[in-house]
Nucleic acid binder design. Structure first.
Length: 864
RNA sequence: GCCGCGGUGGUGAAAUUGGUAUACACGCCAGUCUUAGGAACUGGUAGGUUUUCCUGUGCGAGUUCGAGUCUCGCCCGCGGCACCA
């Protein structure tokens, strides 16, 4: 027998597939239903393909091949997320232009992907760093801009005073510039934003159609629950109340007031002070009346120097009182002091909060540091985790009475602010609201505020607009021109793409590298023709990846990002797979882009990815993350070399559930390798007999095994349980390997099942049938690729064994196992069980109370 | 801290509505073949008892004829978010 030479055979079929592209291409004209199966396109890093890529691409490759064999017109494309910081950093370090290093890396990725037999439609390959692609990224920018969804606004950035430039967060060390050691401050700078916050809630399209927003859309798509929850948390919707506190200046009520946002208005009678964020404009409006202006200013200045990161890291809650003014609680007219503290975030809510130290951990901490009053107004509701409070105790079991003292003490501690209580409960010491449950109190208090004109219900979101401008070279230039006369002007569509200049020094000076290129920077205004300058920032790479799945529908189109016809034909994506690290950013941005297009009538769906799955991370053999510095990285090339591509594919699928984290084991690769060797051996050594339709000579277990296997493999691929599909194929081979003569039809069907997992070996064996077959009419069939075969169907009746083992339990313990015919009646089964000698030992002389029968599985006898 | 996911042999892991726990594979042990190494093949492989049972799915309760699976309370590990009022 010739040994399976994986190197030679895999090369052979990879060449065959390249010569026969129609096997993997989506068909332009077809009556078959479409299926769009997409992988998150990779960033072509210098490190090459990672085993995690292999896991992702193999899973969807199996699925795509399976779908094609089930008569779907499958679109399974690939491309390159080529812009990005790493290429630029590599360029700076090695002096190689990012364009060159990126394209070298892409070549390497292509070779590696082809070496594991992934059936991509290469005719639709895209590269986000090519002008043909980023022309449309720029078009999207203009599209958003024209619809008021892209805008420029001042935003905080790290500014180095001596370099006169912005630096990235990573370039700030201990509040100083990494390069010059100069002081870094937070400075408001003009930045570009996309208005993603417009699409949080459901919206109407221009044509009047209703679409789901970023929150509700999640309910109608098949995504991992954890991913949906992450997105919801990121959006961070919270419903609360805005309360207006009047400001009292040196004992006079003033016309000014300040608004706070709270989700716990039920605690407002416990408010003992109010806190403003340092960014708040309230203090600047009160300048003339603040008696400690200098102290306040110093605190604000000190805050400005801190980065957001430092502000959060600071564990001590600092702040200063704004003296000379007081805030008046609208509910009880109490005057409370006003503080300014950096634990309050300026950009969220109103940038001011009412502090209730008895019921909020942060306020509690701050109050302790500054010796402020604490006043508890919420106590645990009567029964909570066995803790009983107040009058109710008398109505409950006497044995609980000893809790009384404890409960009263707790209640007292909360009231005095000695103990903090942050949950909902019952309101006390709050005038007419006392005795209400937190939730009722919130409703009634908010209603009162609205009636008095002193507040309102308000929904706030954590999600901010998306800051898309980057002061970097290796990205798509933002297509905007600044003219002294006309101001901000959009580049005309006919002038797209705004080419990324190749002649600039891409090394970072802190400023946008593009600003240095005169040929790029100096232009004439498209409106008035006067001298003007280009925007020199580039776009965040996430912008490129927010729409690439649309481009695949029509990747060569020169007139549009994709034709409506092709979008309609292929979108939305039916199955999307990629790493869980993209649960928030990429997936949220892509959904945003889809919703914008839906709103303006370009597409008629509002969710881009109907079904999403993540592959679990593959760890190194030592259980740690694979990393260059630890030297524990497994290179897929080495595995292909040593074991073969098919063995690598099956190993990665056999490791465990696709979405779980798993550790690599070089030793365990032997399993799939042995399995494939066994398959090869059986097809080469055993006699395959053509037994026509009835196959009378063949023991029934063989066709039963075949049908069981077809069923299991089919269902398991459909549900992404590749590991158990493979173990079923192993069981099949173990069983068939015991016989010398094997029915050819069964082995052929098995080979078709195996083909998506081990495409090279399957093609090789399939093609070998062409010579071996006795029936000359079959020769043509075997000369074709196995992937043109139809996926086998199973006969449910043939998946059932004739005899099964029935378990007999007595009082829940197994006492006998009896072989029975599957089809016998319940009466017969019970009779057989009760007559068993082993069972009689336990039932003799006892009353049989109950006999439970589970068809084909077990009898449970209950005796007294 | 909050949210999510998980905990089953020496290892990776299986297990429809609750219904035979440990399928499949790795590793290990023994045997066959071989000059030998390796490969291949056959058998064994949860623990305790020894030929018949008992105990076993992180820990402790509960529901049930029956719990890895359901309920409650803990412990541990991993991932994400983290001063969002």
């Amino acid at each position: 027998m010739k040994k399976y030479n994986h190197k030679k055979i895999e090369k052979k079929w990879q060449k065959y597939w390249e010569d026969n592209l129609e096997l993997s291409q989506a068909q332009e004209n077809s009556d078959k239903p479409k299926f769009y199966c997409l992988d998150m396109f990779p960033y072509p890093s210098g490190a090459g393909l990672h085993v995690g890529h292999v896991e992702n691409y193999t899973a969807t490759d199996i699925y795509s091949r399976f779908k094609r064999m089930n008569d779907f017109n499958v679109l399974h494309p690939i491309g390159w997320d080529a812009f990005g910081l790493p290429a630029e950093n590599f360029a700076i370090k090695q002096g190689v232009h990012p364009d060159k290093s990126t394209h070298d890396n892409i070549k390497n990725f292509i070779n590696q992907i082809k070496s594991i037999g992934i059936s991509y439609d290469w005719s639709r390959e895209i590269d986000t760093s090519s002008p043909e692609y980023y022309k449309w990224t720029q078009w999207f920018f203009l599209f958003l801009y024209k619809n008021g969804l892209a805008y420029k606004k001042k935003a905080k950035a790290n500014w180095c005073e001596s370099c006169k430039t912005v630096v990235a967060n990573e370039q700030v060390v201990d509040g100083k510039c990494e390069r010059c050691g100069g002081e870094i401050i937070q400075k408001d700078l003009e930045q570009w934003f996309f208005k993603i916050t417009d699409f949080i809630e459901d919206f109407k399209g221009e044509n009047g159609k209703e679409f789901s927003g970023l929150i509700n859309g999640l309910d109608k798509i098949d995504w991992p629950n954890s991913t949906k929850i992450s997105q919801k948390n990121w959006i961070g919707k919270s419903e609360g109340t805005i309360v207006s506190f009047e400001i009292k200046i040196s004992n006079e009520k003033s016309a000014t007031s300040l608004n706070v946002f709270t989700t716990r208005v039920d605690t407002i009678f416990g408010c003992t002070y109010v806190v403003l964020a340092p960014e708040s404009s309230v203090t600047s409006n009160l300048k003339s009346v603040i008696s400690n202006q200098k102290e306040v200013d110093e605190y604000i200045e000190a805050t400005k120097k801190k980065t957001d990161l430092e502000r959060m890291e600071n564990k001590e809650k600092t702040g200063v009182e704004v003296k000379g003014v007081k805030a008046i609680n609208p509910f009880n007219n109490e005057e409370v002091p006003i503080y300014i503290a950096d634990y309050v975030i300026g950009s969220y809510g109103t940038g001011a909060v009412m502090a209730v130290p008895a019921h909020d951990e942060r306020d509690f901490e701050f109050a302790n540091n500054h010796n402020l009053l604490k006043k508890g107004v919420i106590i645990p509701s009567p029964i909570k985790s066995g803790l009983l409070i107040g009058d109710e105790i008398d109505n409950v079991n006497d044995s609980y009475k000893h809790f009384d003292d404890y409960a009263n003490k707790k209640k007292d501690n909360i009231r005095k602010g000695i103990e903090i209580f942050v949950e909902d409960g019952t309101v006390i010491d709050s005038g007419e609201y006392s005795g209400l449950k937190s939730e009722e109190a919130r409703e009634k208090m908010t209603a009162w505020l609205e009636k008095e004109g002193k507040g309102e219900m308000k929904v706030n979101y954590r999600l901010r607009d998306w800051l898309v401008s980057r002061q970097r070279y290796w990205g798509a230039p933002i297509p905007i021109i600044y003219c002294d006369k006309c101001g901000e002007v959009a580049v005309l569509e006919k002038d797209l793409p705004v080419m990324l200049p190749t002649d600039v020094d891409f090394k970072p000076t802190g400023e946008s590298p593009l600003a240095i290129s005169k040929s790029f920077h100096d232009v004439t205004c498209p409106l008035c023709g006067e001298k003007a300058r280009r925007e020199s920032d580039t776009m965040d790479t996430f912008v490129c990846s927010s729409w690439y799945y649309l481009r695949f529908a029509d990747s060569q189109n020169k007139e549009e990002f994709a034709s409506r016809e092709n979008l309609e034909k292929w979108l939305p994506v039916d199955l999307y797979m990629g790493g869980a690290e993209h649960t928030v950013l990429h997936l949220l941005y892509a959904r945003f882009f889809t919703k914008v297009l839906a709103k303006y009538g370009y597409i008629n769906f509002d969710e881009p990815f109907l079904k999403l799955r993540h592959q679990g991370m593959i760890m190194a053999e030592d259980g740690r993350k694979m990393s260059k510095s630890l030297g524990n990285v497994v290179n897929p090339d080495d595995v292909v070399e040593g074991f073969g591509a098919d063995a690598l594919r099956i190993y990665e699928m056999f490791m465990g559930p696709i979405d779980e984290m798993k550790a690599w084991s070089m030793q365990n690769v032997n399993g799939p390798k042995n399995f494939l060797d066994k398959v090869w051996k059986i097809f080469n050594e055993k006699e395959l007999i053509d037994c026509g339709g009835d196959c009378k000579d063949i023991p029934r277990e063989l066709p039963v095994m075949l049908h069981k296997t077809i069923k299991k493999v089919t269902i398991d691929i459909e549900s992404f349980n590749f590991n158990t599909a493979i173990s079923q194929m192993m069981i099949f081979i173990n069983e068939f390997g015991k016989h010398d003569k094997l029915p050819k039809f069964a082995m052929e069907k098995f080979l078709i099942l195996l083909a998506p997992f081990a495409p090279h070996m399957a093609e090789e064996i399939w093609s070998s049938f062409a010579e071996a077959t006795a029936d000359k009419s079959d020769v043509e069939k075997y000369k074709q690729s196995i992937f043109l075969q139809k996926w086998p169907e199973f006969d449910e009746a043939m998946t059932k064994d004739e005899e099964v083992e029935m378990v007999v339990q007595v009082n829940g313990k197994i006492r006998d196992r009896i072989k029975i015919n599957t089809e016998i009646s319940e009466e017969e089964a019970k009779k057989i069980a009760l007559e068993s000698e082993k069972v009689k030992v336990y039932t003799e002389g006892k009353e049989i109370r109950k006999v439970i029968y589970v068809k084909g599985k077990l009898i449970s006898i209950v005796v007294g």
